[in-house]
């Protein structure tokens, strides 16, 4: 089955899995602190850890995929792939916007800057997962 996947579909699976793992680790890291203290300050080791994990993980994934499929990795996306990527990016953008606006509205009512930070960061992670899932869906559907 792996051989039947295009380079961009393999990339979508891998990046989606990375984003999902990072989101789960982030929630597992922050939630206990939040329950214990009632809030979790954003600018500390949690954010730095996920930022580094995202960058390093993305570089490793793209390097391994490109090394295994050098010809496909160099080729630009064709018309069907561009359509699928654009549709997925469009829907993911709505998810990010919805989550960000919800976090901002929460801030207006409760004035909790920590939750605003976490709300926007979680929206970003969820929209990244959704973008990968939607890319796979549109690649499978045909465009």
């Amino acid at each position: 089955m792996y051989q039947d996947l295009s380079f961009r579909e393999k990339s979508a699976w891998a990046m989606g899995a990375l984003a999902l793992i990072i989101t789960l680790f982030y929630l597992a890291d922050v939630q206990p602190i939040s329950w214990r203290t009632g809030e979790a300050p954003p600018v500390d080791r949690h954010f730095i850890k996920i930022a580094i994990a995202t960058i390093v993980g993305s570089i490793i994934i793209q390097s391994v995929l490109a090394a295994r499929n050098p010809k496909e990795a160099e080729a630009p996306a064709d018309e069907r792939e561009r359509l699928a990527l654009a549709r997925a990016g469009n829907h993911a953008g709505f998810i990010l916007a919805f989550g960000s606006v919800a976090a901002l509205l929460h801030y207006l009512v409760h004035a909790n800057g920590d939750l605003l930070f976490h709300g926007i960061l979680i929206s970003l992670l969820v929209s990244t997962i959704a973008e990968s899932a939607l890319q796979i869906f549109y690649f499978r559907r045909g465009g």
Binding site: S6, E9, E72, D78, E79, R80, E81, F139, G142, G143
Partner: peptide, 14 residues
């Protein structure tokens, strides 16, 4: 286009 796009065209998905 890619091989996968030709497959999608032949299968009537694209």
């Amino acid at each position: 286009v890619t091989r996968h796009t030709i497959i999608a065209i032949e299968q009537g998905r694209y």
